[in-house]
Amino acid sequence: MTRWQRMIRRFDPVGRRLVTAVVYAFLAFLTIPIVYTFVASFASSADGVLPSGFATLENWRVVMGYADYGVQTTVGRSLLFSAGIATGGTVVNLLVGVPIAYALTRYEFFARDWLNALAILPLVPGIVLGIAFLRAYPENASTSFGLVVGYALLKSPYMVLTVQSSFQSMDLRRIEESARSLGASWPRTFLTVILPNAKNGIVAGSIITWTLAAAEFNFTYMVYSQGPRPFSLFLFENINNAPFLQSAAAISIYFLIVVSAIVVLQFLGNRGFTTTTTNP
């Protein structure tokens, strides 16, 4: 063993501790604002450095529309509306993005590289896409349907990229050919072998597209004009107009919904794909 190798070996435990410490510090950096906001939503005063007067559900009652005063609209309707629109966008992405990711990985075809670039192009800022939508489809851009299509388009690169990377880690052609040689038609191969093998990517893509769409602000702000108020606009207005503690309750509700969505999607990922395994 050279002197250099001995030095590296000696540094090894220190290095490992250092990396672990950085990971924990980063996690704390990410979670402190969320935990602080969540805890503050149960406080009755935000006058000092830290919130005080624990614990009350008043802020939650106000934003959920159970109080006689407070924010202009209740959070429930906005949340439901945004969750619905985000779910619509995610479903559109599953139906369109997954096949696109498959085709881009599996086949060689004319202008494949162009399609690859096009699939990532919607990563443009939401505000840019919003303006483009309003100009191109002035009639439909501001409707719920417009929001679903807009969210789907805006978040599609996350679905395509995550699912594509799942497909790339598989020997797609050989797996497909094995299944077909065993008597499975192409659609059956795709549904019972290819998709379940890309499960992790599909679940991850759904979580990312859903959570990003549910809180999309820029695009929504640009195109929204009718129907229930999307959650991101509701938050924006209430952070301006309502006390901090009520905003904290509204944000906490959003986080709880995101966590629930992740749990549900992961549960579906673990159970919902096993069409074949339960019945060999």
Partner: peptide
């Protein structure tokens, strides 16, 4: 490459 189905 064996090409086994990892979901089974």
């Amino acid at each position: 490459s064996y090409a086994l189905f990892d979901n089974m």
